[in-house]
Simulated scan of single mutants.
Amino acid sequence: MGAQKGKDLLLKVRDGGGVFVTVAGLRARQIAFNAEAVDVTHAESVGRWRELLAGAGVRRAAVTGAGVFKDEASDALVRQSFFDATIATWQVIVPDFGRIEGPFQVTSLEYRGDHAGEVTFDLALESAGALVFNAL
């Protein structure tokens, strides 16, 4: 896979009608996957090397984004999801890699405005269940 344009990494949220709407105006976005390790090292571990229990840790994904307001529909979906503390179905589309889809909760929504600039926002999502990956 060659280099990809950052603007092609998309973040979408499912609206009330079941349609995925692109979160408009994002200038930066990121997805991070994490898995906790479960340490099962004991007094008889060979050479006192740490041992981990496969498949036992909690997995999670975190998504962040930052941008400017562009589209009232997607802005309203994100804002309402935060204030209602709902868990919605989101998609992260990574070009030439795949689509990650599943339940996420908006855990942070920040608005910022400079005197001589536009109003911007930052958002953070945390996975709230099993995610599905589909290769593109």
Rank of each mutant, 00 (worst) to 15 (best):
M1R: 03
A3G: 10
G6E: 05
K7M: 02
K12W: 02
V13A: 10
G18D: 02
G18W: 02
V19I: 07
F20T: 04
F20Q: 00
V21F: 04
R27I: 08
R29C: 13
I31V: 07
I31D: 01
A37P: 02
A37K: 06
V38R: 11
T41L: 04
E44P: 04
R48E: 08
W49Q: 08
E51I: 14
L52P: 13
A54Y: 05
G57P: 14
V58N: 13
V58L: 14
R59G: 11
R59E: 13
A62M: 13
T64C: 10
G65D: 05
G67D: 14
V68P: 01
K70G: 14
E72T: 15
L77R: 04
V78R: 01
R79Q: 09
Q80M: 09
Q80H: 09
S81L: 04
F83V: 09
D84M: 08
A85F: 04
A85R: 09
T86P: 10
T86V: 10
I87L: 09
A88R: 15
V92E: 07
F97A: 12
F97C: 10
G98L: 05
E101G: 09
G102D: 02
F104P: 08
Q105R: 12
V106F: 01
V106I: 11
S108Q: 15
E110L: 10
Y111F: 03
H115Y: 01
G117Y: 05
V119E: 13
L123T: 00
S127H: 06
A130H: 03
L131S: 00
V132I: 02
N134C: 06
